[in-house]
Structure formats: structure tokens, C-alpha cells
Computed example of a mutant assay.
Amino acid sequence: MNASLPRSIPDYLDRLREALAGADPALVQDALYDAEEYLRSELAENPGKSEAEVIAAVASSYGAPDEVADIYRDTEVKVQTALRPPAPPRRKSALGRFFGVVADPRTYASLFYMVLALATGIFYFVWVVTGLSLSLGLSITIIGIPLLILFFGSVRILSLVEGRLVEVMLGERMPRRPLYADRSLPLMERIKELFTDPRMWSTMLYFVLMLPLGIFYFTLATVLIVTSLASIAAPVLVWTGFADVGMSVDGWTLINLQNDVLYTNVPYWGLPVLFVGGFVLLFVTLHVARGIGRLHGSLAKRLLVKSAQTA
């Protein structure tokens, strides 16, 4: 067994990545980080031993790369099964699938993410634009380069924060550990790798895109929700006597407040149509939210997670 073990920590990580080929890139990132952290800590506790000796010593407890890969795959299945919300019952009819969206917990999480995206989008955009422009502007001074390095480090931290939001609300598996760094490399090489990492720039692109996406998500969610609820509420208020029908035709405001009396400019014959339309629009809104959640989760996965093939 020892003859087949890697002779160095980078070699161990390369073989672990190969053993995890085909697995989720987020899982690969977590496994590589955990393995390096464990092996580096063992190497620090045994300063008189080489990397090969440390790897051989911990092989029985931590495992060879193939064994670790199998453990991570099995654990991932168990964890995802435990964290996955109960699946809604499968509907056979088209109407069942249309109205069954109300029983999917992921729908409401996606809708909440659409509303929250405005705040996070503004923060990410301001952070990236301000941090990048300030760091580059001061790069000719003595504090410019350290400030730029700190800014790039903060981007990696924010990518993990956004990843947790995406995984919890949208259900897309995202990294739970940062990217591992080869600490055996000289400091300048590690800094160079930080600047040349394509995933760093794609993360900043994602943060910049979050502003227009956040505005779009928030506007779409609020308009659809308000329109559907108002369309349902207006007929109910008229039928229960809390509002009256006005014949005004200038504008399409569903409820007008005139002289402390509620009016709606929809005629009586249109109230049932308005009520049914609002009810249907509410379910359409839930479908739209769930669809946007899936699309945005895929976008976040593509821009925030380093592919195992290119790592």
C-alpha cells in the first residue's frame, strides 16, 4: 500500500482530484481543502519528517486518495439526502403540476432570494467597483499592492457567503470551503496565482452582474406579487362591501381612495374575471420564481466554482 501512496502533498491532492473526477466541482473543492489542511497540520506537528513519511503515517487514519474520494462521495449522498427538503408529491395532470408548485418549499425560498437580490446586488457591485478602482488607483503607492491583495481575498470570502445563500435558498450545491492554496510555493508565486486565477475574475463579474439581476429580480417579484394580490383583493373588497365600483376610465388602478371610500374602476361583470386572473397570476409568479431560482443557481455555479478539470 505504501508503495502506491503519493510522495508529496501536491501529488496527494492531484491524485485526490483524479479520484473525484466526475463529482460535483463544489465537492471537489471542499475535499481538496480539507485534505490539504489535514496534511499540512500533520506535517507541522512532525517537523522532523518529510511529506512522504507524514502521508505514509496518516494513511491508515485519513486514507489514501482513492479511499478519501469514496468517503466524500458517500458522505455527500447522505448529507444531501438529509438536507434536501421533502419532495412534493408528483402530479400526473397538467393542472396538478401547475397548482402543485404551492407545495414546493424551494419555490418560496427562490422568491425570497429574488427580493433579497436587490440588497446583495447593490452591496456586491459597490464592493467590487470601489475596491477594484481604489486598489488600482493606489497601486503606484506603497500601500496599493497590499490593498489589492486584501481586496482579492475579500472577494473570495464574499463568494463563499454568496455560495451559502445560493445553496440554502436555491438548492444548488456550492463550496463550503475556500479554494486550497499550495503553501509550499514562494509568496510571490502564490500572489501571482491569486491574480491569474480565472475564477477570481469570473467571481467579480458575477458580483457586478448581481446589480442588474437584483434590480430585475426584485422588480419582477414585487410587480407580479402586488398585481396578483391586488387582482384578488379588489373583487373581494367589493363583494364584502368594503369597496364600491366606480365608473372612472382614466387609468387602471384597481382600488382608489376617494373621500375615505374605496372605489375600483373595474365593472361588476369584470370582477370574477379579475379574481380568477389574479389567482392564476399568483401561481404563475410561483412558477417564475422557481424557474429563476434554478437558472440563477446554474449561473452562480458556473461563475463562482472552479471546475475540477481546470483546477
Rank of each mutant, 00 (worst) to 15 (best):
V155T: 12
M188K: 09
L150F: 11
G153A: 06
T130Q: 15
T203Y: 01
L185E: 12
V129R: 12
F207G: 00
I140W: 14
L160C: 05
G163E: 08
G121S: 11
T203M: 05
L136P: 08
V166D: 07
R176C: 00
G121D: 13
R183P: 00
F207Q: 03
S184V: 00
T120P: 09
V129I: 15
F151S: 06
M174D: 01
Y113D: 14
Y124F: 15
R199M: 03
E189Y: 02
G171F: 02
R199N: 06
S133P: 01
F195E: 09
I149A: 07
A181D: 06
P146H: 08
L138V: 07
Y206I: 03
V128A: 09
P175K: 05
A119K: 13
L160I: 13
W201M: 04
T141K: 07
T141C: 02
M174P: 02
G144C: 04
A117N: 13
R190D: 08
L138W: 08
A119N: 14
F151M: 10
G163W: 05
T141L: 14
S202N: 06
G131C: 11
I149F: 08
I122W: 08
G137N: 09
S184P: 00
P175D: 02
W201G: 02
R199C: 00
V161A: 14
P186L: 06
P146I: 10
R199H: 02
L148K: 01
Y206F: 14
R199Y: 07
A117T: 12
